[in-house]
Design a protein around this nucleic acid. Structure first.
Length: 587
RNA sequence: GCGCCCGUAGCUCAGCUGGAUAGAGCGACGGACUUCGAAUCCGUAGGUCGCAGGUUCGAUUCCUGUCGGACGCACCA
């Protein structure tokens, strides 16, 4: 489709230049660069549309006249004729593509193994950091959005040909970790997660919440937490022992949630291993004159000429800060695995932090700093407002999955499909994941989104399960065909039979998959693909109603449509995977 | 105060580099299951695209201002 578009752009450019010569106007490069391709609002108007407004002034003729003139020029060009037909539609030049060739090529491509893998990012190494949980509590809905974005973008970029390395930066040190440790020391009495019947990360999270109780009982609890951190930094074996034990629980539980939601990482790095990496780099930068030292010994960078502020990079006592760690980690990672691009999937509250970080790395002279990217995303809010740990309004990831999964199971039961589905719990889980991930990815990342339990747990309409359902329907047709049902087995595939408007519309949609994937990869925007999948599902659903596949009296048409269904299924299969939705043969 | 993001139908959201009557879903109302799965489909109602200027042949899209909301401006992470 992309090649077709550029081919047509060239044809239009040629005709435009010829027309300009006739009018005695010089066709400069800006004339050709003003050509835009759009999709006509109605299928009857053609497949491609070229608005002629920009040329009216230059060519000193009305847009409609230009369109008519170009249409007749193109009609006289046999090379163009092989690719389709152009006609004037008021001020627009609309093109109807030559259908048979495109049908054959599209369906052949879509039913071949490589569908959904492209090469325009081949040779690029992309590192992506996402999730990055704290080890003091379990994952919540906000993490699920982060995970879905990170995992989806990783899949999209690999599908685009890049070599992707997914990194999870575990925040396993700091006062907040010490708080849960302190509360456990006080109230835990040596119990294990199993003793309380809790998933291990929930067990740790419970003690983190209990720190609030501790604070009420002991006004010096905050100080005690700071003290515990100092003892941790001093490496006291008793503290380290407890820290290891509790982190182990937290991470074990968090990993179980990753597995359940089909998210995985190539590399885990731990803040406890990397938090001191940046200090040496800052000192190097000081020596190089990029940074400066205050009288009290703290080290700063002045970014005011870049529209940012001054920023401390090293405390007066020489210890590192959040940003120091990030400086060190980025440099270390590039040395370890020289990436072409590093993407941080982190909430948009931290946009300023990343601006500063990237600017600092640029000033340190790293040419790769230009390829650092903060993928910022908005919060997930509740109708009652922001989720708050203290108020207990945090939507826990595991609980949410349980809830959606139970609802899906109920739905299967109500529809009486337990038998057809087989593994009911497994299928319910996949539907839940499809619903959740589609919900989280259909919205553009920058927008805060509202999570309304009642409204959001729906399986009808513009939802993940709707798309999964269309996949299941397509699969069902193909299953029946494989089993020898229907007329297709007696027919011969002839792609020219799929040139009617209804089939063509669906073929065209399938042909858009590669360009959607490319746009999605370039913009790092899963929502484009999510929207595309919904469009495809809608087109398929309408087509499905009006166009018999297996029980078509024309055996050749039947056989050809089976191939079209195969292409739809392949596209849904490849596409849903990219937005982290399980594909279901049956549901 | 400065910075950044958002503001489209009652609600939740789409709307690609500016382009042909602004799209879905939910909710409301009315239809369609003896044919490939009704988690579906079709139809009706519902919008001064926050507001005001500007650029342009043309602005929901770009610019400026303004109002409203969120977030950020720690020797916390």
């Amino acid at each position: 489709m992309t090649e077709l578009k550029t081919a047509w752009k060239n044809i239009v450019a040629g005709a435009l230049e010829a027309y300009a010569r006739e009018r005695g106007v010089e066709a400069g490069p800006d004339l050709v660069s003003a050509i835009v391709i759009e999709r006509p609002p109605k299928a009857e108007l053609g497949d491609l549309g070229f608005p002629m407004f920009p040329f009216a002034k230059l060519l000193r003729s009305a847009p409609a006249q230009v369109a008519a003139a170009l249409a007749s020029k193109i009609a006289a060009d046999p090379a163009a004729g092989a690719r389709g037909q152009a006609r004037a539609e008021g001020p627009y030049l609309n093109v109807s593509l030559a259908r048979p060739g495109i049908c054959g090529a599209t369906i052949a491509a879509a039913t071949s193994p490589g569908w959904g893998s492209f090469g325009f990012l081949a040779g690029k190494k992309v590192m992506i950091e996402f999730s990055s949980p704290n080890t003091n509590k379990p994952l919540h809905l906000g993490h699920l959005r982060n995970n879905a974005l990170g995992e989806s973008i990783s899949r999209i970029l690999s599908a685009a040909g890049a070599e992707v390395r997914k990194v999870n930066h575990i925040n396993d040190r700091g006062v907040h970790i010490c708080k849960s440790m302190l509360a456990y020391q006080r109230y835990g009495e040596g119990r294990l997660p199993a003793d309380e019947g809790l998933k291990s990360d929930h067990f740790v999270g419970k003690y983190y919440v209990m720190f609030n109780k501790l604070k009420e009982e002991d006004p010096r609890a905050e100080e005690a937490a700071q003290g515990l951190l100092r003892r941790w930094e001093a490496g006291e074996s008793e503290v380290i022992e407890l820290w290891k034990r509790m982190n182990g629980w937290a991470i074990e539980g968090i990993k179980a949630t990753y597995e359940r939601t089909d998210v995985c990482f190539d590399l885990y790095d731990f803040e406890s291993d990397t938090y001191e990496l940046g200090r040496a780099e800052v000192l190097k930068g000081l020596a190089a004159g990029v940074f400066y030292k205050e009288e009290d010994g703290s080290i700063w960078v002045d970014l005011e000429d870049a529209g940012l502020d001054k920023k401390v990079l090293l405390r007066k006592d020489g210890t590192s800060l959040y940003i120091t760690q990030d400086i060190g980690t980025a440099i270390f990672r590039h040395g370890d695995w020289p990436y072409d691009r590093l993407i941080y999937v982190v909430a948009n509250e931290q946009q300023y932090h990343f601006k500063v970080l990237f600017e600092v790395l640029k000033r340190l002279g790293f040419e790769w700093a230009a390829e650092l990217h903060h993928l910022a995303y908005g919060l997930v809010n509740l109708p009652s407002g922001r989720m708050k740990t203290r108020e207990g309004t945090v939507v826990d990831a595991d609980d949410l999955m349980d809830e959606i999964s139970a609802l899906a199971a109920k739905e299967i039961e109500e529809k009486g499909r337990e038998g057809a589905v087989g593994d009911m719990a497994g299928v319910a889980e996949k539907i839940a994941l499809g619903a959740l991930h589609y919900y989280l990815l259909q919205t553009g990342p920058m927008k805060d989104m509202l999570y309304d339990t009642e409204a959001s747990l729906s399986f009808t309409g513009d939802t993940g399960p709707y798309i999964q359902y269309m996949g299941a329907r397509a699969s069902s047709i193909l299953r029946k065909h494989e089993a020898g049902e229907g007329n297709a087995v007696k027919g011969r595939v002839r792609f020219e039979l799929l040139c009617g408007d209804a089939d063509w519309n669906l073929v065209k949609r399938i042909a858009e998959f590669p360009e959607t994937l490319e746009a999605s990869a370039k913009a790092m925007e899963p929502s484009l693909l999510a929207g595309y999948l919904h469009d495809l599902a809608v087109d398929f659903s309408a087509w499905y109603r009006d166009n018999p596949v297996l029980n078509n009296s024309d055996a050749d048409l039947s056989a050809s449509r089976v191939e079209l269904v195969r292409a739809v299924r392949a596209t849904l299969q490849a596409g849903t995977r990219l937005v982290c939705m399980p594909f279901l043969e049956s549901m």
